[in-house]
Every structure is written in C-alpha cells, then in structure tokens.
Amino acid sequence: MRHSSSRRVLPGFGLSLGYALVYLSLLVLIPLGGLVARSTQLSPDQFWDIATSSRALAAYKVSFGCALLAAVVNAVFGLIVAWVLVRYEFFGKKLVDAFVDLPFALPTAVAGITLTTLYANTGWVGRFLEPLGIKVAFTPLGIVVALIFIGIPFVVRTVQPVIEDIEAEVEEAAATLGATRWQTFTRVLFPALFPALLTGFTLAFARAVGEYGSVIFIAGNMPMVSEITPLLIISKLEQYDLPGAIVLAVVMLVISFVLLLTINLLQWWTANRHSGRHVDAGAQA
C-alpha cells in the first residue's frame, strides 16, 4: 500500500486526468469563467442593484421555486413509475418504458406548446380544471407542469437500475423478521434507493432550473408573477442590456452551483454511510 502513490495498478492516470481537465475546461470552466470575468466590469454596487432588483428577485423565486417543486413531484412519481416498470409484468410494458424517454428527445418548444394547448381554459384538460377554479396555463402552476414533464425521465432512469438490483430476498427477509410492508419500504427499500433517488432529483432539478423552451409558452411570462430568470436574461439581451443579463446569469450560476454542491455533499454522505466506506478509511489510517 505504501507504494500506491507512485505506482498505480490502473495505467494512464496522468493522461486521462489531463484529458478530463482540458475537456471540462474547454466546455464548462472557460465559458463560465468568461461570464464571471465580464461581470467584474461592473462596480459591486451596480452589480448588487441589478442582482437584487425586485423583478430579478421575483424571477429567482419563480425559477428556483418551480424547479424545486417540480423536482420533488418528479422524485415521488418517478420513483413510482420506475418501481412499476421494474417490479410488474404487464401488457405494453416495453412501450411504456420507451415513453419515459420521450421528454428527452422532444423539442422543448413542442412540449411547451402542447402543454399550453392542453391546459388552456379551452383545452382538453384545462376545460375540466377551469370550473374547479384551477388555472394552469399562464400561471406559475403551468411552469411547474412543464418542468415536471421535462424532468421525469431523469428520476426514472437513475432509480430504475437500482430497483433492479434489489433482491426480492431482502424483502422476504424483512417479512420473516416481522416487518410490515410499510416498514419494509421505509426501513429497507427506501434507504437502499435513496442515494439514486437523490441523484435523479438533482438532475431533474438542475434541468428544470435551466429550462427555457417549454416554459415560455405556458408561463404567460408576467413580470413579478410568472417570469423565469432565463426569460428575464433574454429580455435584457433584447434590450441590449448586456451587463444586466450577465449579472443575472452569474447569480443563477452561483445559486445553482451552491445548491448542486450541497446536494452532492449530501449524496456523498449518504453513499458513504450506507457502504461503510468511512470505517474502511478509518481502519487503513
């Protein structure tokens, strides 16, 4: 073990790490760095004023609030969909399985227009919701619906292989030990699924924060009510307000990064806790 730092069993560490760093730099770090660099041309006061204008604050709230809500809904229902697809055999299962991926492939504008048509007060679904006093199209609720649509495959596809991995024997073992179905789910199945579910949630959330195409059709885009940050950025660009657009972009970048980092840390912590890796590390030290 003492030589592990100089001689690794797997070859090509230097080359592959170098490649990964260059690749990530070209595609992610340099463009984002440029963005941040441009924002420094503004004085801190100017930056702060633009970043915290009431319209911007409302836009952040809509963007992150709707994305979070959509990701939570997706986590719950995506888990159910994945469970059904793995555990039960039914007619047309392969077809349903293929449907799950459609939101990946469909142009988001198409999704937005379709959902708007459906949920507008004359649409197939909207006309039944209208008498109940529920308005979906052109409200924040519409944004959530669109974000749920584009986010669901992320949860299903990350959780599915993990459910496939859980042996039926584990459930039987819990039953022989006297656990009810609910206890088996909360104490045995859910903890095993949780790290994957968290990953799926993160991906769905990240995707929803960045979504633009489908939302602008269904949102109504009323400032202070249903205007998402990406749209505010575009409208600033259209008004040739480049510094304003950059400030909002940087704010989104920072909030997204902090949120994702937090979730990643949480994920790392749960994964470690469940595999007992920290005990290993302790034993080797």
Partner: peptide, 22 residues
C-alpha cells in the same frame, strides 16, 4: 398465516443482509 406472523427464522443462500445497515 402471513410470513411475518409465523415466527420463523429464515436464512438465505445469498445472505440477503440489509446492505445499508451496520
């Protein structure tokens, strides 16, 4: 009688331990 009320101890060939528990 349901498995959980039979009071049987069952040992599986592939252990079926709960991986996320100590």
């Amino acid at each position: 009688v349901h498995t959980r009320e039979r009071q049987v101890g069952f040992v599986f060939q592939h252990y079926a331990l709960f991986r996320h528990m100590s």
